[in-house]
Computed example of a mutant assay.
Amino acid sequence: MIYSEDDILMLSGIQHFAFCKRQWALIHIEQLWAENERTVEGHFLHKRADNPFISENRNGIRVARAMPIISYTLGLRGIADVVEFSEAEYESQFTTRLNNYQGLWKVTPVEYKRGKPKKDDRDTVQLCAQVICLEEMMKVKIEFGELYYAQTKHRQRIEIDEKLRIRVYSLAEKMHEMFREGITPPAEVGKHCSICSMVDLCQPRLTKKYRSVANYIRSAFLESEETE
Rank of each mutant, 00 (worst) to 15 (best):
K113G: 00
Q31P: 08
R62H: 12
S197L: 05
W33Y: 14
R65V: 01
A25I: 00
I29M: 02
E111R: 05
W24T: 04
R58S: 11
I195A: 13
Y149F: 11
C202V: 05
D50M: 14
W33N: 08
I195E: 14
E35I: 03
A150H: 08
F85W: 05
T39M: 01
D50K: 13
L98P: 02
F94N: 15
E162G: 06
S219E: 07
E111F: 02
D161L: 08
Y90L: 15
E223N: 04
L9Q: 00
I160P: 01
I29H: 04
T108Q: 14
F19Y: 14
Q126P: 03
L134E: 02
E181V: 06
I217Y: 06
E173F: 12
L11R: 04
K106G: 09
I79Q: 07
L9Y: 02
E84I: 05
K47D: 14
Y101Q: 12
R211L: 10
H154G: 13
A150T: 07
S55F: 14
L127D: 00
V40L: 13
W105H: 03
I160D: 02
T184Q: 03
T152P: 04
T108A: 08
L9D: 04
E87N: 08
R48F: 15
T95Y: 03
V82W: 06
K116N: 11
L104K: 06
Q151R: 15
A49Q: 05
C196H: 00
Y216R: 13
M67D: 09
G103V: 01
H176L: 01
M10H: 12
G42L: 00
H154L: 13
R155G: 09
L9T: 02
Y148Q: 04
Y216C: 12
G190V: 00
F144Y: 15
L134D: 04
F19N: 11
H28V: 06
S12H: 08
A172V: 05
I160M: 03
G13Y: 02
N59G: 13
T73S: 13
M67K: 14
K139T: 14
S212T: 13
E84Q: 12
F85N: 05
R122W: 08
S170M: 10
F179L: 08
E5I: 08
E37T: 13
M178Q: 14
G103W: 00
R155A: 09
Q31F: 11
Y112V: 05
T227R: 06
R155I: 09
D161Q: 09
R58A: 10
E173L: 12
D81Q: 02
Y90V: 15
D7M: 11
L26F: 02
K153N: 15
L74W: 03
L32N: 06
A150I: 07
L134G: 03
N215T: 11
F53P: 05
I54Q: 06
E162I: 09
Q130H: 07
Y210G: 08
K139A: 14
M138W: 13
R38D: 10
C196M: 06
M10F: 10
K191F: 09
G13N: 00
I166R: 15
E136Q: 07
L164H: 02
E56A: 13
R58L: 11
S71W: 01
R211T: 09
D161K: 10
K139N: 15
L32V: 01
Q151V: 08
N51I: 01
F144H: 12
S212P: 04
L32G: 03
R114A: 10
M178R: 10
R77Y: 14
F85T: 02
E146H: 08
A150R: 10
C133P: 00
H154D: 15
V131R: 01
T207D: 11
N36S: 04
Y90N: 15
M138Q: 06
